[in-house]
Structures are given as structure tokens and as C-alpha cells.
Amino acid sequence: MSRRKLKRKELESFLQDVDVFEKPKVLLEQYPTTPHIAACMLHTIDTQYNQLEDKAVVDLGVGCGVLSIGAAMLGCGSVTGFDIDEDALATCAENIEEFEIENIDLIQIDICSLLQNCGKFYKKFDVAIMNPPFGTKHNSGIDVQFLQVGLSLTTEAVYSLHKTSTREFLKKKAEEWNAEFEVIAELRFNLAKTLKFHKKDTVDIENTNPAHVQTDICHITI
């Protein structure tokens, strides 16, 4: 990659080529981060906060890798992607190879197992980026757990995507942790195109208006 900074639109157009989950798992809430949201999020982190270039970045719930690949394209020093799911990691590894990016490393790990004690990962990264599970599929609170792990792994900031409807709740959580919580952008997240929620007639679903979820890009620091 040349050092010339990619514009947001250019980044978004590159990220269109990141393959997404072949068979998204409902229980793991594998909603792919759309290229648009990924590009908005990363471009903001880069231009407004200057927290990607030369940084050690961790991507919690890396999935197919759209955030990690985008972060690498914007010049971060290294990216480490954590995910529990073997299939997502396999797709992610293919994407990374396709993009010819050499500074992303992947680990298959249960992020929640790092909640009480993150061992040698403690404060090893500068910045965490994540699109955590929303915590609506019998895994209530997992979004908050991802944030907590993110804060213990990093020295500078956590950037995360959340449903706007959980904003007040997350603000309170951040207060409990003595963390600063700020919403840096509000976007619409198109879910219906990816997870079909067990409905039988997929044609019908494609013809209805996709369900949009109002999403916050959050910036959390301690």
C-alpha cells in the first residue's frame, strides 16, 4: 500500500470485495459489517482521532475481516483478529490472502474467556475495533463483555458498533467503569439482507423493505 491516504469512498469500494459469511450463524449473530459502515467507522477513527496509522490494533469478533482489512489498508502497524468461529476465520484468512495483506494475524479464541483475566494480552494493543454481537440471541450482555475485554487489552481507545437503542445503557456501563463514552456517528445497519431469521419464503423477504437497525459508532476510552 502506498502512503497516500485512501478516501472514504475508495476504501468502501475496496471493501466491497471482502467475502462475507457463507452460512451466517444466528446464534453467533454473524451480521457482516457492511463496507459502508466499515469505511465510515475506520475513516473517522483515522481522520478525526488519528488512531490507526502505525497502531497495534485488535479486532474483537473479527468475523470475515472487513474492519481488520480496512484498518490494514489505512496503515496500521499490525492487526490481531479474535474470533470463536472456525468458519468465519477460514473466510477471513481467504480474504486477507486475496487482499495480499501481511500484517493481520488471527486467533481462534472465546473472547468472553478473557473477561476475568486476559493474561498476557493486557494493554498490549493501542486500539480495539469491533462489531460485537448485539446480545439478543440468548447471549445477553455479550456486547458489554466485548467492550470490557477491549478496554483491558488496549491503552488508547475502543471503537465499537452498537444499536442506538442500547446507547443509554452503554453510557451507564461506561460510567461504572470510569470510562468516557461518546457516539461519533449514527448510521443505519441493514440486517435483513444477511440473516433471514428462519422465515421460509426468502423471495418474499427480499421483496420487503429491509429492516434497518439504527447503529452508533461508539468511542470509549479510560
Binding site: 486467533i107 498476557k120 498490549k124
Partner: peptide, 12 residues
């Protein structure tokens, strides 16, 4: 990478 190895432990 060994960078990653340096942060990995089996403490859990």
C-alpha cells in the same frame, strides 16, 4: 506471528 505468540498464554 511471534508477535501474537508473545501475548498468548494458557492461563485460562
Amino acid at each position: 506471528k511471534l508477535l501474537t505468540h508473545n501475548m498468548l498464554s494458557s492461563n485460562f
